[in-house]
Amino acid sequence: MSNLMRAVRAVLWSFIGLGGRRADADRRTAQVGLLPLVGVALVTVLLLIAGLLALAHFAAGT
């Protein structure tokens, strides 16, 4: 599995809170590295916010 996919998987698991044991989370972080995790997390949060804004805009009908 590529490093990017490992980072995406680790971030998504942490967002929904099903990361498993602490040792598993530490192992995933060590495999990927801290900087890619932070980058993927920022992009994911920005996409989530953009999606929510688009949904609100669509729901308001403007």
Rank of each mutant, 00 (worst) to 15 (best):
residue 15 F to D: 15
residue 16 I to T: 07
residue 24 D to V: 08
residue 22 R to C: 01
residue 19 G to R: 06
residue 3 N to P: 01
residue 4 L to T: 08
residue 17 G to H: 04
residue 27 R to P: 01
residue 30 A to C: 04
residue 57 H to K: 14
residue 41 A to I: 08
residue 16 I to C: 11
residue 51 G to I: 13
residue 16 I to P: 00
residue 24 D to I: 07
residue 30 A to M: 01
residue 26 D to F: 10
residue 56 A to T: 15
residue 10 A to I: 09
residue 15 F to C: 09
residue 23 A to W: 14
residue 2 S to W: 05
residue 7 A to C: 00
residue 58 F to K: 09
residue 43 V to P: 02
residue 22 R to G: 07
residue 25 A to L: 12
residue 46 L to F: 07
residue 27 R to L: 13
residue 58 F to A: 13
residue 1 M to L: 09
residue 61 G to N: 10
residue 13 W to D: 10
residue 27 R to Q: 11
residue 10 A to K: 00
residue 36 P to Q: 06
residue 60 A to R: 15
residue 8 V to K: 04
residue 58 F to E: 13
residue 31 Q to W: 11
residue 35 L to N: 06
residue 59 A to F: 12
residue 46 L to W: 12
residue 1 M to F: 12
residue 28 R to D: 06
residue 38 V to N: 02
residue 62 T to A: 14
residue 43 V to H: 07
residue 6 R to C: 00
residue 39 G to D: 08
residue 11 V to P: 00
residue 12 L to W: 01
residue 11 V to Q: 01
residue 21 R to I: 05
residue 18 L to M: 08
residue 62 T to K: 15
residue 48 L to T: 15
residue 13 W to P: 00
residue 11 V to M: 03
residue 22 R to M: 08
residue 13 W to T: 13
residue 26 D to Y: 07
residue 18 L to K: 10
residue 2 S to H: 05
residue 43 V to S: 14
residue 26 D to N: 04
residue 21 R to A: 03
residue 23 A to D: 15
residue 14 S to A: 03
residue 12 L to S: 04
residue 30 A to R: 09
residue 3 N to G: 05
residue 58 F to Q: 10
residue 58 F to W: 13
residue 61 G to I: 02
residue 13 W to I: 09
residue 49 I to C: 01
residue 38 V to F: 09
residue 10 A to H: 02
residue 55 L to F: 13
residue 28 R to M: 06
residue 23 A to P: 10
residue 18 L to Q: 05
residue 28 R to I: 01
residue 44 T to W: 02
residue 55 L to Q: 14
residue 32 V to M: 03
residue 35 L to K: 00
residue 50 A to Y: 13
residue 42 L to Q: 11
residue 14 S to Q: 04
residue 56 A to H: 13
residue 39 G to K: 06
residue 33 G to D: 06
residue 17 G to L: 03
residue 43 V to F: 12
residue 1 M to N: 10
residue 4 L to P: 04
residue 12 L to H: 03
residue 47 L to Y: 10
residue 59 A to S: 13
residue 46 L to H: 08
residue 23 A to S: 15
residue 61 G to Y: 08
residue 19 G to Q: 02
residue 58 F to D: 07
residue 59 A to P: 04
residue 40 V to C: 01
residue 38 V to I: 14
residue 52 L to N: 14
residue 5 M to H: 08
residue 44 T to C: 09
residue 56 A to N: 08
residue 36 P to S: 01
residue 5 M to L: 15
residue 30 A to H: 05
residue 9 R to Q: 05
residue 21 R to H: 14
residue 41 A to K: 02
residue 12 L to Y: 02
residue 45 V to I: 05
residue 42 L to D: 00
residue 51 G to L: 12
residue 29 T to D: 02
residue 33 G to F: 06
